[in-house]
Computed example of a mutant assay.
Amino acid sequence: MYCIDSRSTDVYFNLAAEEYLLKRKRQDYFMVWQSEPSVVIGKNQSVQTEVNEECALKKGIHLARRFSGGGAVYHDKGNINLTFIETTAQPFFEMYLQRVVDFLETLGISAYADKRLGLYVEGKKISGSAQCIHKDRVMYHCTLLFATDLALLETVLKENSSDAEPIPGLEAVRAVPSVHSAVTNIDCYLDTPIHIMRFIRLLFHYFLTEDEENAIYHFSKDDLSAIQRLRKEKYANEDWIYHRIALKKDLS
């Protein structure tokens, strides 16, 4: 497995990188990344029903849409994102979740999962996840709330009804509502406080050393060129963000 520590905090770049690795590569990858304050909604969701847009605009929070399902999540520099991408004929998403649980256990944190593959500590959510399959390639990605601004998270994410509503501009498509949970930060449960960058280094080293054949991977010039093109033409494109239009430049 190739391990990538993405130092870009551009949410559109990192979402584009995920799709590029899934659809254009054949190797297995693990990527850890962060974003500047952003709300990322699932591919079948509506910005208008999930996001307090007035708050997002006032606070300079980016809006983004990923190409996997699931609910809306808030990212900031106190949140960490993990992405696993592999070639397999039989996806088993619980395996990726268990690997994250095992890592947290090394820090003395006992986390458990629900049926939606979210992670909880003492009844409060610390991680949400989403998955997708492309041919024989699978992707599992999740958040880890380490020291996120939870008050802002609660403000910018709307609490909507459980009824699916039409996506504005695509009335024939029913938007999938998020399922809201009480949330908390991982750093509240550490016996010894550590800085988030130290936590990221421990996390990255844990997955890098899972297998002796794992190796660090850096994006090549060709990789970066393709990712930046996808970023511009899809992920930073308001047509994709607001209306889920299938853009011509989407990767096959």
Score class of each variant (00 low, 15 high):
123 G>Y: 08
217 Y>M: 14
68 S>F: 05
17 A>D: 11
3 C>V: 15
197 M>C: 07
227 I>V: 14
115 K>P: 04
151 A>M: 07
7 R>Y: 09
168 P>Y: 11
1 M>D: 04
77 K>F: 09
112 Y>Q: 15
241 I>H: 12
96 Y>Q: 12
127 S>A: 12
106 T>S: 14
72 A>V: 08
64 A>H: 07
60 G>S: 02
1 M>P: 04
134 H>W: 14
147 A>C: 14
105 E>Y: 06
126 I>Q: 05
65 R>A: 09
160 N>D: 07
98 Q>K: 13
226 A>T: 08
62 H>Q: 09
21 L>T: 01
50 E>T: 06
97 L>K: 03
225 S>E: 14
157 L>W: 06
125 K>C: 11
248 K>H: 08
179 V>I: 14
151 A>P: 00
241 I>G: 13
108 G>T: 07
21 L>Q: 02
137 R>N: 04
240 W>Q: 01
17 A>R: 00
155 T>K: 12
226 A>H: 13
137 R>C: 03
227 I>C: 09
50 E>V: 04
119 L>V: 10
115 K>C: 09
177 P>I: 11
3 C>E: 06
182 A>S: 09
124 K>L: 08
86 E>D: 14
89 A>S: 12
65 R>P: 02
110 S>H: 11
10 D>W: 01
99 R>L: 03
242 Y>C: 06
221 K>H: 10
201 R>Q: 15
183 V>R: 06
99 R>I: 00
218 H>G: 03
213 E>D: 07
97 L>E: 14
164 A>N: 06
31 M>T: 09
112 Y>I: 13
9 T>F: 08
223 D>G: 10
21 L>E: 03
205 H>G: 09
78 G>Y: 03
197 M>H: 09
126 I>L: 12
130 A>G: 05
89 A>V: 02
19 E>S: 04
40 V>F: 08
220 S>V: 09
190 L>P: 01
124 K>R: 11
156 V>M: 10
246 A>Q: 07
163 D>H: 10
93 F>I: 05
147 A>M: 06
147 A>P: 00
222 D>R: 15
90 Q>N: 15
158 K>V: 06
